[in-house]
Every structure is written in structure tokens, then in C-alpha cells.
């Protein structure tokens, strides 16, 4: 792709960064899977691209910030979207605070992540791959400064596995996936996950109880699996 450099090769897609329409842009190109029949592959890819775009839009309408979409190109199997220049992943943000021994000061931050997830699920958006790398911490004033929580926004990204679903099972799994991801990424995970759940509960008033029950279920099943396997 012209004017773009490859920044990441994932399992489903290649991520390029460049300037497009005069904007700092990420191009997410889903690659062809040769083991699939070509027309099936084209259709599946088209549906995945639509599902990803739908989730990005639904988030905005629900009051969750996601990157702007500049072009959805089914022919090139690519979504062109806003690159958030003044951002770092929640993963790096948490690690920076952990290293400084300042994690206690992030209570409000985790609570807000919980709010964001509560909003997602309240609107039946299942992310499908919740991790601390799939949430960006963005400076509101276009500068590289992440010291003051009030100057930061949260932006949800990577809806490549997202779908719309109202049942509590998928929401429970979403939370479980996040917990596992946090445990394998952050030494302070045990401290932060409860705060996230607190924010989630506060936001998702009439649904969180049921989701928490499902989440416990999913977790118990997961444990059994690891004991057996």
C-alpha cells in the first residue's frame, strides 16, 4: 500500500500506518485465507468488516469513543481509520504506573474502564477480545502527556472479533477473557480487576448482576478445564 508502513502482522489482519486523505491513519487489511474457497473467503471477510464497522459505530452512538472511520473498502478488504497519535495502550499506561509504584492512584482510571465496559454490554456490544492493549489512553489536548487523568480519554479499539448479542453468556465470557488477559499481563491484576467490576456495575445497573453470575460460571468451567487438561 502506497504511503503506508506495516506496523503489525496479526492473526487475521495486517495493520499499516500512514497518511490518508491528509489524516494520520491506520489501515487494517484482512488477508486472504488460502485454505478457504475464494468466494466463501470474500464473503466471510466482507461480513467481518461489516461487523467491525457496526461495532465501532454502535460504540459511538452509545457514548464510547472509537477511532473515526475514513473508508470501508471491501475490494481491498481494508478499513481505513483514525490513528490516535497522542495515545498509549492501557497496557503500557498501567505498566508505567506500576513501575513507579503509583498503581494506587489509578482507582478512578479502572473505575472508568469498568464504566466503558458496562456501556458496551448495556448496548449489547460484545468486544470479543478485551485486553489492556485494546483500550487506548488518549491525551485530549494533542500532546504526549499522560500524567493527569482528567486530561485523558479512553478509546476502545480492535473490534475485529466483535458482535452484537444480548445474552449474558457472551458478556460473561467477555469479562472472563479480560480477566485472563490482565492476569497474564499485569502483576497488579488482582488489585485492578475488582475496581473494573465496580465501575461496570455502576454503569450497567440492571444487567450486571446476571452477567456476574455468568462470569462466575464461565470461570468455574475454565478452572475445571485447566485441572483436567
Amino acid at each position: 500500500m502506497k504511503n503506508f508502513e506495516l506496523i503489525k502482522q496479526g492473526a487475521e489482519a495486517k495493520l499499516y500506518k500512514g497518511i490518508y486523505l491528509g489524516q494520520s491513519t491506520i489501515a487494517k487489511e484482512r488477508f486472504i485465507k488460502n485454505y478457504r474457497h475464494p468466494s466463501l473467503d470474500t464473503n466471510l471477510t466482507k461480513e467481518r468488516i461489516k461487523a467491525e464497522s457496526r461495532a465501532l459505530m454502535r460504540c459511538k452512538i452509545a457514548g464510547i469513543r472509537t477511532p473515526a472511520i475514513y473508508l470501508v473498502d471491501f475490494k481491498r478488504r481494508t478499513i481505513f481509520m483514525e490513528y490516535l497519535e497522542y495515545s498509549k495502550t492501557a497496557k503500557d499506561f498501567i505498566e508505567d504506573y506500576t513501575k513507579l509504584g503509583l498503581i494506587k492512584e489509578l482507582s478512578q482510571f479502572f473505575y472508568e474502564i469498568g464504566n466503558l465496559l458496562g456501556k458496551l454490554h448495556e448496548n449489547n456490544i460484545i468486544h470479543g477480545d478485551l485486553t489492556s492493549s485494546n483500550i487506548l489512553v488518549v491525551n485530549k489536548n494533542n500532546e504526549h502527556n499522560y500524567d493527569s487523568l482528567s486530561e485523558l480519554d479512553l478509546v476502545a479499539i480492535d473490534f475485529g472479533l466483535a458482535h452484537i448479542e444480548s445474552n449474558t453468556e457472551d458478556k460473561g465470557v467477555d469479562l472472563y477473557v479480560l480477566e485472563r488477559a490482565l492476569l497474564s499481563t499485569h502483576s497488579v491484576a488482582e488489585e485492578i480487576f475488582p475496581k473494573i467490576l465496580e465501575g461496570y456495575k455502576k454503569q450497567y445497573k440492571n444487567g450486571s448482576r446476571e452477567v456476574f453470575l455468568k462470569y462466575e460460571d464461565v470461570k468455574a468451567r475454565g478452572r475445571k478445564r485447566t485441572m483436567v487438561g
Binding site: K50, R54, L56, M57, G63, R65, A68, I69, L71, V72
Partner: peptide, 19 residues
Amino acid sequence: NVTPILNSLVSRIATKDFL
């Protein structure tokens, strides 16, 4: 309140044919 207005506008324009 959370999303810059131009983001909302261009994203709707980019996706309105299938959403």
C-alpha cells in the same frame, strides 16, 4: 460528550451504505 463531532460525521458517511 465523548466523541469529537468530525469523527461522528465522517464515520457515518463512511458506513451509511451498509449500516
